[in-house]
Simulated assay, not measured.
Amino acid sequence: MPPRPAAPPSRPLVVSADEDLLDDVLRVLAAAGTEPEVATGGPALRRAHREAGLVLLGADVLGAPAVRALPRRPGVVVVAGGVLAAPAWAAAVELGAERVAVLPDDEAWLAARAADAVRRPVERGWLAVVGGPCGGAGVSTLATALALSAADGGDGVLLVDADPWGGGLDLLLGAEDAEGLRWPALSGVRGRVAGEALLAALPEVHGVTVLAAARDDPSPVPAEALTAVVAAARDCGRSVVVDLARPAGPGDPTAAAVLAEADLAVLLVPARLRAASAARLLLAGDPGEASPWRAARLVVREVPDGLTAAEVATVTGAPAVAALAHDRGALSRGERGEPPVVTPRSPLGSVARRLLGELARPERAA
């Protein structure tokens, strides 16, 4: 069966009887590259209100019975030619408007919002979260290798550093001098964020966009900011790897927030008894509560004279999907600011490709 053609993007709906306001709105939408549907009542209004990707209500129709009878829905913006009076503000809130756009001051915002609403849908990027049960497990190196391997495959990737006291993930990419934002410059973001603008503000090296911690201003990464950044990147088609290097208990809100959305969670466990025991605690969670790590895939990092992968599986109660062989040169390369080697035969490259294969399994989409 041939693939079904993509549905055309829906047209915005404009509801207004104010000719001057209508002219201004149509001009802004034309600049955004979209032609709207205009309706003020009847079946056409109800149909368009249901189907439109964006609904623009003129301030002049906020009290109209046909408008007040419409069901609440997302994607409603009230457009006005001046500051709204208190009763009009109350009506806008009652209708569930996400914003009141006052022209001409908000023309740029309205054009961007309209363009975003009619953009053809893109396939949402996947999310992989890498963590460890103890310090020094090599989580940051594996997260970086996973991002580099995905970038080698032609996918755009955002690598996010969720460990503000780790010294900065950009060091592993040799990007410490690259221009762009770091945490905590984005610690205040919340809710819906423009993904393209966010990605453009971050450093990029070796095909990987990176949001790293700032070495001169370490501070906790708020769970709300982390999830907003991750969602913004994924919504515009960018896949994301989050480094949760510093170990935290099952109740850690930042880890829980990002793990809840993960397509793949990876727990890197050094082949030592204490590390395996700590991993078991992470997987088990608090009594009476499911651990956010419960679905994690285990990768065992081999160490000289350490446990075998089978022994780690016995201690943790979970099988390992891969074993990361000891790489003598990894430490020295990191000290020289050289990115991890991710060739198919390298230890990190082999494991990264195994994890990318986990992301590509059909049951992930089920």
Rank of each mutant, 00 (worst) to 15 (best):
L268P: 07
A325T: 11
R99Q: 15
G334A: 07
A7F: 10
L62N: 03
D24S: 14
A88Y: 09
R50V: 14
L172H: 12
G207N: 01
L186H: 01
V100P: 01
S16Q: 08
W293S: 09
V242A: 01
E289Q: 15
G75H: 06
R274A: 15
G167R: 01
V241P: 00
L282K: 01
V230P: 03
V205K: 10
R124D: 11
D105C: 14
A223E: 03
A295V: 04
L181T: 05
A150S: 06
A85V: 13
L146G: 07
W293M: 08
E107P: 13
A271W: 00
R272S: 13
A85N: 08
L57M: 05
C236M: 15
A231M: 12
A295T: 11
L202C: 05
P164N: 05
V230A: 06
V28P: 04
A91M: 04
V61A: 08
V157M: 09
R182L: 05
G180E: 00
P362W: 02
A320F: 00
L198N: 06
V229Q: 02
R272L: 13
L13R: 04
R328W: 15
L198I: 08
L307R: 01
P344D: 04
R215V: 11
L57P: 07
L148A: 05
V315A: 02
A17D: 10
P3N: 09
A290V: 12
A296C: 11
R46F: 14
A201G: 12
L29M: 03
S219M: 05
S219F: 08
P253T: 10
H49L: 10
L173P: 04
R328T: 12
E19H: 12
T254L: 06
A320I: 00
E363F: 13
V312R: 00
V93T: 15
V130L: 04
T316E: 03
E19L: 14
R301I: 09
P164R: 01
P71T: 03
